[in-house]
Measured scan of single mutants.
Amino acid sequence: AEIMKKTDFDKVASEYTKIGTISTTGEMSPLDAREDLIKKADEKGADVVVLTSGQTENKIHGTADIYKKK
């Protein structure tokens, strides 16, 4: 799966169907969080990951919607 910015995804959204939401939390780098989200998306058969939230304090927390091409 590839990560797309919401603004970029909005241009092609009609080509995809939302298949779920994924999240990651833990003591990790932003890059590790990104890789974890991609891994989870791949496991669910998603083609595209669109980040919906991200937070960093002591731990990273990120959520994303996942989509499959129609």
Rank of each mutant, 00 (worst) to 15 (best):
D36H: 12
K69C: 06
K40C: 06
S14W: 12
D36E: 14
L31I: 10
P30V: 08
N58A: 11
D10L: 07
G62S: 13
T7L: 10
K69H: 08
A1M: 06
D47C: 08
K68W: 04
L51F: 09
G26E: 11
S14F: 10
Y16D: 00
N58S: 11
V49G: 01
K68T: 06
M4V: 07
M4G: 01
I38T: 04
V50Y: 01
V12A: 01
K18Q: 08
S29C: 11
A33F: 11
M4R: 01
D32T: 09
F9K: 00
I38Q: 05
E15R: 11
G62D: 08
R34D: 05
A46T: 00
K6C: 07
P30F: 13
F9W: 03
A64Y: 14
H61Q: 12
T24E: 03
L37S: 00
T21E: 13
P30N: 12
D65F: 05
D10I: 06
T25L: 09
D32I: 06
K5T: 15
A1C: 13
A33I: 09
S53N: 10
A64R: 03
T17C: 15
T25F: 11
K59A: 14
K44L: 15
V48L: 08
I66V: 04
K68E: 04
T25K: 09
V12H: 05
P30M: 12
K39H: 07
P30W: 15
V50W: 03
E15C: 15
F9G: 00
I66C: 04
V49H: 00
L51I: 14
P30E: 15
E27P: 13
P30S: 13
V48W: 01
K39S: 08
I66T: 02
K44Y: 10
Y67P: 01
G62I: 15
P30R: 03
K68F: 05
G26S: 12
K40Q: 14
G54R: 07
D42K: 13
Q55N: 14
G20S: 03
E35S: 13
T56Q: 10
R34P: 03
D10Q: 08
D32Y: 06
G45P: 00
I60D: 08
Q55G: 11
T21S: 12
E43M: 09
D36I: 10
E15N: 13
E27D: 09
Q55C: 14
K69P: 02
V12Q: 04
T21C: 11
T56D: 12
D32Q: 14
S14V: 07
G54N: 12
A41R: 02
D47N: 07
L31V: 11
K11Q: 07
D32C: 13
S14R: 08
I60Q: 13
T7K: 10
K18L: 13
A64W: 09
S14I: 07
E27C: 15
D32E: 12
I38L: 14
N58V: 09
S23L: 07
T24S: 06
N58G: 13
M4T: 02
Y67G: 00
A64M: 09
I22T: 02
M28H: 06
A13Y: 06
T52Q: 10
D47S: 06
Y67W: 04
P30Q: 13
I66Q: 03
L51N: 03
D65P: 03
I3N: 01
T56L: 14
A46L: 01
E15W: 13
A41H: 00
Y67A: 01
Y67C: 02
T21L: 04
S23C: 14
K11H: 06
T7F: 10
G62A: 15
V48K: 03
T21W: 06
D47Q: 06
M28Q: 07
K11E: 06
T24G: 04
K18F: 15
D36W: 15
K70W: 05
T52V: 08
G26I: 14
V12L: 07
K6V: 06
L37M: 06
M4D: 02
A13S: 10
K59N: 13
T63N: 07
K59G: 13
T25C: 15
K70E: 05
A1G: 02
T63W: 08
G20F: 03
A1H: 02
R34H: 08
E57G: 14
V12R: 04
L37E: 00
F9R: 02
G62H: 15
K44I: 10
T25G: 12
V12T: 03
V48D: 00
V48M: 05
K68Q: 05
G45V: 03
E35M: 13
T52G: 11
K6G: 06
I60Y: 13
K70L: 09
G54V: 13
G54K: 10
M4N: 01
T56G: 12
G45S: 05
D47W: 03
D32F: 08
D36R: 05
N58P: 08
L31F: 10
K68G: 03
K68Y: 04
K40M: 08
K5D: 15
T21Y: 05
H61W: 14
S53T: 13
K5N: 14
T17P: 00
S53A: 10
D10R: 05
I66F: 08
I19P: 02
T63A: 07
T21N: 08
I19D: 02
A64H: 08
E35C: 12
T52E: 08
E35V: 11
N58D: 14
T24A: 07
T56R: 10
D42H: 09
A41L: 01
G26D: 12
T52F: 09
K6W: 08
G26N: 10
T56V: 10
G45C: 10
L51T: 04
F9H: 01
K5I: 13
A13C: 11
P30T: 11
I66N: 00
K40E: 04
V49A: 04
G45L: 04
I3M: 07
L51R: 03
D65K: 03
K69R: 09
E15G: 09
K70C: 09
A33W: 14
T7N: 09
G54Q: 14
M4Q: 02
Y16S: 01
K70F: 07
T63G: 04
S14C: 15
H61P: 10
D47M: 04
S29Y: 10
N58W: 11
